[in-house]
Nucleic acid binder design. Structure first.
Lengths: 231, 231
DNA sequence: ACCTGAACACCGTTCAAGT
DNA sequence: ACCTGAACACCGTTCAAGT
C-alpha cells in the first residue's frame, strides 16, 4: 500500500476539490497528536500501532495509509518535537558556540523520555528535518571558524554526536529502573579490584549529577587543540 | 517459578548425589552455547526464547528453569563473551594506559554484532562479571595515578564510557542498513545551511573511517587537563 | 480514495498438570 | 526436580474485500 502524496504532505484532501471515494476518518496530524497524547498518558513503551489505532477509534490497518510503518511514525514524532524546541541564543566565540549548541540539543533530547529509542534508529541524522539540522550547521560552522578544515569539522561533529548519544542512552536506560543504580557495579567489588572498591561508595553520587556540560567542555577543548587528525 | 541454586551456579545436578525427580534435558551451559550458535547462524535479531528452545529441541517454557528471562540470557551471553576477550598488555604511562584499555574494550565490543542491544540494558555495568571489571579498575587506577581524586576518576571513567557506548551504538545501527549512509543527512541540504551543504560530499568518507581512537585521545587529554570538575 | 477485519507470523511469560 | 502444552496478552504488517 503506497502512501500517496496528499498523505505525505499531511494535508486533508479537500472534498470540495471533486475528489471521490470514501472520506478519510483521520489524518497524519491527528495521528501524531494522538501518539503524543498516548505517550504522555501511558508512557513511551505503550505506543504501538494497535493501541494508537484503538485510541483513535479506527482500525489498526488504517494507520498504514498515513504512515509507512512504526519507525516512520517515530521519526515523524521526533521531527515534530525538535521543530518545537526554541533555538537558543549562541555566543560569538566558536568554542563557546559549539558547547552552547550541543548542550541545548542535549538538554532537549534528554528531557524527552523517548529519545533513547529514536536515537538508535537507523540512519538517524539522515532522517532529520531541516528544522533540526541547525545543530549540525552551527557546529560545522563554528569548527571551521576556529580554523579547521571541512573533513576535520565533520569528524569533530561526529565525535560530539557520539558522546551526546551515549550519555542520553545510558541515562535513559537507568532512569527506567531507578532501583538498579545507574551503571554502578552491583556488588561490592572484590579485593583484587581495589580502586573500584574504593570508588564504589561515591559512584551513585557522581552518577546522579549532570556531568554532561563538563565532559563536553573537556571533549571540545581536546578536539579543538588536537594536532593529529584521521582525515 | 524460582531459578534454584544449582541452576544459578550453572551446574548440572549430580544424579549420584541422590537428587530425585525428572532428569534435566538441558543446562545453562548448553543454552548459552545454542544461543551463540543461533546468533552466528541466523543473526542477533533471531535470538528469541521460542527459537532458542526449538533449536534445543525443548519446550520454550523449559528455558525459564535455567534463565530468569530474556534479558538475563543476554547478560549471561555478554559476560561469557567478555570473559573470553584477551586482556591486553597496557603501557606504563597513565594517559596511554587509559587509551589502550578503552580502545581494547571498544574494539572487542564493536566486533560483537549484538553489543548494541546489550549496552542499552538497564544498569549494564552493574551486571558485569568480575572478568569484565578490569576495564573499570584499570581506568580508575590510571586516572588516580595521574594525580586525580576518587570522584574525579569516576567522572572521567563515566565520560569515557558514554563516548564508547555512543560510538558503538551509532555505528551498529548504521551497519544494519548500509544503504542509509551512516548518519548522513539524507538529502542535499538547502542553501541556508551552507556548511552542511559543503560538508555533504565528504560525509560518507569520514563516516567510513575508524575515528574512535582519535576522538578518544582528544577526550582523554581534555579530561586529564581539565581544571574545573563537577565533583 | 479510503477504510476494514481477518489472517499471518510471530513475541515473552505464567501456570497448572504431568513425569 | 524438572519438563510440558495450553493459554494469555500482546506485537507489526499484508491483503482482499468493502464503501
Amino acid at each position: 500500500v503506497a502512501v500517496d502524496q496528499a498523505v505525505h504532505d499531511g494535508t486533508v484532501p479537500q472534498l470540495s476539490q471533486g475528489r471521490t471515494g470514501r472520506p478519510p476518518v483521520t489524518s497524519r496530524a491527528e495521528i501524531l497528536a494522538a501518539a503524543r497524547h498516548l505517550i504522555d498518558q501511558d508512557g513511551w513503551e505503550k505506543l504501538t500501532i494497535r493501541r494508537l489505532a484503538t485510541q483513535l477509534g479506527i482500525g489498526a490497518t488504517t494507520l498504514y495509509h498515513h504512515v509507512r510503518d512504526r519507525e516512520d511514525l517515530v521519526v515523524l514524532l521526533l521531527n515534530e518535537f525538535i521543530a518545537q524546541i526554541p533555538r537558543p541564543e549562541l555566543p560569538e566565540d566558536p568554542r563557546d558556540r559549539i558547547i552552547a549548541a550541543a548542550v541545548a540539543a542535549h538538554d532537549a533530547l534528554a528531557a524527552w523520555p523517548w529519545a533513547a529509542e529514536v536515537l538508535t534508529t537507523d540512519g538517524f541524522i539522515g532522517r532529520l528535518d531541516e528544522s533540526a539540522l541547525w545543530l549540525v550547521e552551527e557546529i560545522l560552522a563554528s569548527v571551521i571558524a576556529h580554523g579547521h578544515t571541512q573533513p576535520q569539522a565533520i569528524y569533530i561533529f561526529r565525535t560530539i554526536w557520539y558522546y551526546m548519544v551515549g550519555e542520553i542512552l545510558v541515562r535513559a536506560h537507568s532512569r527506567r529502573h531507578p532501583a538498579a543504580l545507574e551503571t554502578t557495579p552491583a556488588n561490592f567489588p572484590p579485593a583484587h579490584l581495589p580502586h573500584l572498591a574504593a570508588a564504589f561508595p561515591h559512584w551513585a553520587t557522581i552518577a546522579a549529577q549532570n556531568t554532561y556540560p563538563n565532559g563536553l567542555r573537556a571533549l571540545v577543548d581536546g578536539l579543538l587543540t588536537q594536532t593529529t587528525f584521521p582525515p
